[in-house]
């Protein structure tokens, strides 16, 4: 394997990883945009999405099979279910806390995360659940480079979802309302925008995207468990911060950058794969300390 083959292989792996990060990072950044909350439970919504996708697939696989179509339908079901869960969480846990001190709402978000995690723990007994599909291992071989069809479909699906989101936010009425709410809630209220509906929609979309990523990750890696959301939650947050929190394009960019950095970073001498996660957190801390607005974020004079 020549060095550029290896480089391309890392690029392909990095894109897959980056797609997951980007989809989850979008939820962080959207929620942060409208209510300035760091939703600690977001990683767990990804986990819940994986389980919902698993449940959805076992529902539909009898009719549609466990191939692309079955997984796609299962993913839509999971997005719908987890999207609604996200809205319910916002209504029950975050909505009453919006006026409370920052510390209280952060701890509430942490509590929601623990509830989701431990609910999944109780249901599965802490065991890995096998996510069986009929996807197979076919792919394209270009010289020494191998890219599986799964990887291609996965990255393409993620791209379609992100383009759809971008169109929604930039072209539709609700997308415009969402951007307005992110800038000034009080003014929006005065102009007759239903702010709580916009917040609900934001949670629905953000949670739905996390669920899409969860289902795809389950199908791609083949197993799911209750703690799978923790690390990816942290990393997606890192991605959102790299791109500039609050910026949707930034989250996509940040996700891809982080995926590629991790994929290449594990091949730098002295940073073996066992240091991969340390590497990510070091990036997070460096970005937060030296450039807290990220690549595309707007600078904001705010001290809390």
């Amino acid at each position: 394997m020549t060095w550029y083959d290896s480089l391309l292989q890392q690029l392909a792996d990095g894109l897959v990883l980056g797609s997951f990060y980007a989809l989850v990072a979008l939820g962080y950044t959207m929620v942060f945009g409208v209510i300035k909350l760091l939703n600690f439970a977001h990683g767990d919504l990804y986990m819940t999405g994986a389980f919902a996708g698993f449940g959805g697939l076992s529902l539909v696989s009898g009719v549609l099979g466990a191939g692309w179509l079955g997984i796609f339908v299962a993913m839509l079901l999971a997005m719908l279910a987890v999207g609604c869960l996200g809205v319910v969480i916002e209504r029950i846990a975050y909505h009453p806390m919006l006026a409370a001190p920052r510390l209280s709402i952060l701890i509430t978000a942490l509590a929601v995360s623990l509830v989701l995690q431990n609910a999944a723990l109780s249901l599965t007994g802490g065991q890995y659940t096998a996510f069986r599909t009929d996807l197979g291992f076919g792919g394209l071989s270009l010289g020494n480079l191998f890219i599986s069809y799964n990887q291609i479909v996965l990255v393409a699906t993620a791209a379609v979802l992100m383009i759809a989101l971008e169109l929604f936010v930039s072209k539709t009425l609700y997308g415009r309302a969402m951007r307005a709410v992110a800038i000034d809630k009080d003014m929006c209220r005065m102009l007759g925008i239903n702010v709580s509906a916009v917040i609900a929609i934001t949670f629905f979309i953000g949670s739905g995207l996390a669920a899409a990523a969860g289902t795809m990750a389950g199908a791609y890696y083949g197993s799911i468990w209750y703690f799978m959301g923790f690390l990816i939650g942290l990393k997606a947050f890192t991605a959102a911060v790299i791109g500039g929190i609050g910026s949707i394009t930034g989250a996509m960019l940040g996700g891809l950058i982080l995926g590629l950095l991790e994929s290449f970073g594990t091949h730098i001498p002295f940073i073996g794969s066992e240091w991969k996660d340390v590497f990510t957190f070091a990036i997070l801390i460096l970005v937060l300390v030296f450039k807290p607005t990220g690549l595309l974020g707007k600078s904001e004079v705010e001290r809390m």
Binding site: L103, V278, I285, R303
Partner: peptide, 26 residues
């Protein structure tokens, strides 16, 4: 980190906590 906003501080401390654990493991 102490100049950061409170939610950033929370996540950075979380990151540091994990770094310490990973370092101990590696």
């Amino acid at each position: 980190t102490l100049r950061l906003r409170s939610d950033y501080l929370a996540i950075v401390t979380l990151g540091f906590g994990e770094i310490v654990r990973f370092t101990a493991r590696n």
